[in-house]
Nucleic acid binder design. Structure first.
Length: 264
DNA sequence: ATGGCATTCCGTGAATGA
């Protein structure tokens, strides 16, 4: 089974890249972030015609997450159950969970996250990001066990260490990499998640995002900020994780590329 | 040291992103 995560930076704009990719790779479960549209605006027709069911936590203009799947979900949780995800008085659509049963009858909980980007450490936006991580861990602590089959994926907006950045000096100490933020990420690992890519490939240098503004892709200057995390029993079944670098090239790419895991 | 590109909207520049 293939499980993918992709920050598409507008699902409507990305349809000409998304549909051929779905048809070619045939991922079984696809978690999208930054769909940037309401449910009414969502391109159901094209995606359903490609053979996918859709669940949504949608929002006008900003954020928004979706899970596409070749099988129907058994259950859905839209957003947080135990926290009000609001920033500057506006409700944010950044979290969506679905439960899926594979051919062998195993049910997996898939948690799709679009973590706030934040801002320089110490700012209000940075605090919202740290609070978001706390709320996510709280949800899991209440409603799940590290022995469950769980895959937590998405744009987690943090790079773990120097190996996850081409120019760590550019990004170190900024919105995506400082000690307090990494403590929050590490708390997920401590709870029981495994960074599947890094555990499969301890030395591999691969990035999931390249800045549009500084022509990061052309300079091969990226960050690994999109992740597939899994609990122990599930992590042990991942045989491969691939960054789809070709999707960053060509016409109208997202600034993020799809990360695809092969689950046996 | 700076800015650069892409996306959205009751838009014609501002806000947001990482």
């Amino acid at each position: 089974m293939l499980i993918a995560t992709w920050n598409v930076n507008s699902v409507r704009t990305r349809i000409p890249r998304l549909i051929p990719w779905l048809q070619q790779d045939q991922p079984d479960i696809v978690c999208l972030q930054e769909i940037k549209c309401t449910e009414e605006q969502f391109p159901f027709k094209e995606i359903e015609q490609a053979g996918y069911s859709v669940i949504l936590n949608a929002q006008k203009t900003y954020n928004g997450v979706a899970i596409l799947s070749r099988m129907e979900p058994d259950d859905v949780q839209v957003g947080f159950e135990y926290w009000d995800d609001t920033f500057n008085g506006k409700s944010c659509a950044r979290l969506l969970s679905g439960w899926y049963t594979d051919d062998e009858g195993r049910t997996i909980r898939v948690v799709n996250c679009y973590v706030p980007v934040g801002d320089q450490p110490g700012t209000e936006k940075a605090q919202y990001k740290l609070d978001w991580y706390d709320a996510l861990l709280n949800e899991l602590t209440i409603s799940a066990s590290p022995d469950d089959e769980i895959v937590l994926v998405g744009d987690l907006n943090v790079f773990r260490s120097a190996i996850d950045a081409k120019s760590p000096q550019t990004y170190e100490g900024g919105p995506l990499g400082y000690p307090l933020l990494r403590e929050k990420f590490d708390a997920l690992l401590k709870w029981g998640f495994h960074d599947v890519f890094r555990e499969l490939y301890p030395q591999k240098v691969d990035y999931s995002w390249y800045d549009y503004r500084s022509l990061g892709f052309e300079r091969k200057d990226g960050l690994r900020i999109d992740y597939i995390l899994a609990t122990r029993p599930t992590a042990a079944r991942f045989k491969e994780v691939k960054m789809e670098i070709d999707m960053r090239a060509g016409e109208k790419p997202s600034d993020h590329l799809p990360v695809v895991g092969l689950l046996e």
